[in-house]
Every structure is written in C-alpha cells, then in structure tokens.
Amino acid sequence: MSTEHDHSHLSDTDLRVRALESLLTEKGLVDPAALDEIVDKYENKVGPRNGAQVVARAWVDPDFKKWLLEDGTAAIDSLGYTGTQGADMVVLENTSTVHNVTVCTLCSCYPWSVLGLPPAWYKSFPYRARLVKEPRAVLQEFGVELADSVEVRVWDSTAELRYLVLPERPAGTEGMTEYQLVDIVTRNSMIGTEKVAMPAGDA
C-alpha cells in the first residue's frame, strides 16, 4: 500500500470493499452500525492484544519504557508490530498528574496494528466532536474519574501520527508477570477512556 503526500490512495482491495459496502448500504442490505457490531463481537478481544503486549513490556522493563516514550515507532517495531504504513507512533504516558486520551478524525489511517479495529463509538461523531470540547465530561461517562488537579490532554491522530496511551500500572500488580499483565490491559485503556483495574478476585 503506497502512500503519497499530495493525495490519498486506496488499494485495489480497499476500493472493492468500499464499493460493496457503499452500494449495499444504499440498498438497505447492510448498515455500518450493524457491521461494527459484528466486527466488535469477533475482534474486541483479539485486536488490542499487540498493544497490550507493548504496555506490559513497558511496565516491567524500564529501559524499554524509556525507549518507547522517546521513539514509539522503533520500540513497537522491535516487538514485531509493524504495518503502520509509514506513520509514526507516539506513546503518551498517563501518570497521577496527566491523563492522555486520543481521538481519530476518521481518515483511513488508524493504528490497528497495535490497537486492533476501532470500536463503533470511537468512530462516532459525538465522541469525536465532544471529546475535544468537553473531555472531562466524556471521560466521566466512560467511568474515568479524575481529580481537578489532573491535566487532561486530548490528542487528535493524523495521517502521519498515531497515538498509543501507556496507561498507569495499577497498584497491587507488583507481583504479576509480564504475561499476566498483558491480560489486564484493555483496548480502552490504550485509547485513554479507561484506567487499568486490578483483576477482581485474583489475589
């Protein structure tokens, strides 16, 4: 898939899929929301696993974390999750004083090599529009409670830059292995609309 700077390019395959989807949608045979629902059912567990492995590695390996925050593209490539079509990955660290959250303007560029496919709400207009205007209210609806002292930063993905949020490692997970940690990192926590929680009943 080549990328050119002055205009967009879609692969032959992408064009065929878009042709099918737009025609079938116009005829009322499929609708985008129902398609998202089907994809979500299949994909939401598998998709973000690559990203979860990046996060878990950063939690257990301070050198990797430093590299990840300095050069996300190279650090993520080193784990084999390439395929970002030339765009750079920037990793944003959530801390006790800064909460990062990402939004995408719905171009065809999305960091799916690490985050899987975007959930339906992420592509929805209300999320995209409101997150920029009232991020705290949107985050609260997702169940993210932030103290007033926490700075909220909203990052809008572009064709050249995609973002991955490095969520805070929850207290009480010090004894967990990297492998166990992968399982508690959720897709939403890497978008910034969730905090990673301690697994319940897993003492």
Partner: peptide
C-alpha cells in the same frame, strides 16, 4: 480493517 468489513458484510447478508 477491510478483512473485517468484508467478513461482517457477509454475515449481515
């Protein structure tokens, strides 16, 4: 993503 779209359209039809 296109793979998922093609898959979902088939299931929907």
């Amino acid at each position: 993503p296109w793979e998922a779209q093609a898959f979902a359209m088939t299931l929907k039809l």
